[in-house]
């Protein structure tokens, strides 16, 4: 996996997936982003979108850092008034995907390679086929989407774009029950788990 190389480069560092549940609030993205920039930490990937619950947004942030740094970052994020909850997980604790789009000249593809074979072997799908170009789409891990770039390069790859990572935590039960707890004036234990007590579990939570 890609993070293995990075682990070699910087001891103790690995990819962490930070999941943040927030209110839908203008300016919050900036408030969260500056927690990283202030510490000169690069955000590798950032995705924000509505969650399964109306009005609650979910951020997926990927950084390559040590657990200690990620823990401190997570606490700073959770401290923000409009942040409900922060989780951080290593790659093997989440299911994650990235989406990629590739634009290739249709004539070359048709001439030099069987489109069907390309699609089959790479789990890709043609989204648009026009006379002048074809757009393929694939989802997967970074190595998989990277692999298709290499394959398509000889066929005159015109344009490539990849989305931020989205990740689902394997051990998570979602946020519905937690939210109800948050809405109480006197929130109970659910809202104030702490990692000292919960570190037996798979999910590290603040």
């Amino acid at each position: 996996m890609s993070n293995q190389n990075e682990t070699e480069k910087a001891p103790g560092k690995q990819e962490y997936n930070i999941t943040v549940y927030t209110e839908n609030q203008i300016g919050l993205l900036n408030r969260i982003a500056i927690i990283f920039t202030r510490r000169k930490i690069n955000i590798h990937s950032l995705n924000t979108s509505p969650s399964e619950i109306e009005s609650i947004h979910r951020f997926n942030i990927v950084v390559n850092e040590t657990e200690e740094v990620v823990k401190k970052l997570s606490r700073q994020i959770e401290k923000q008034v409009e942040v409900l909850k922060v989780y951080f997980n290593t790659n093997d604790e989440v299911i994650w995907q990235e989406l990629a789009l590739y634009k290739v000249p249709t004539d070359i593809i048709a001439e030099k390679a069987s489109v069907e074979r390309l699609l089959r072997e790479n789990g890709a799908r043609a989204v648009v086929i026009r006379k002048d170009y074809t757009v393929f789409e694939t989802t997967g891990h970074r190595e998989e989407t990277d692999a298709l770039i290499k394959i398509l390069q000889p066929f005159g790859l015109i344009e490539f774009v990849r989305s931020a990572r989205v990740a689902i935590i394997k051990h998570s039960e979602g946020f519905n029950r937690k939210l109800r707890e948050f809405e109480k004036a006197e929130p109970g234990e659910e809202t104030s788990e702490n990692e000292f007590l919960n570190n037996g579990q798979k999910i590290f939570t603040m």
Binding site: E23, V81, E82, L84, L179, F182, P187, E189
Partner: peptide
Amino acid sequence: IRSYRPKPL
């Protein structure tokens, strides 16, 4: 405020 817990349990 539901997203804000000023006092940890």
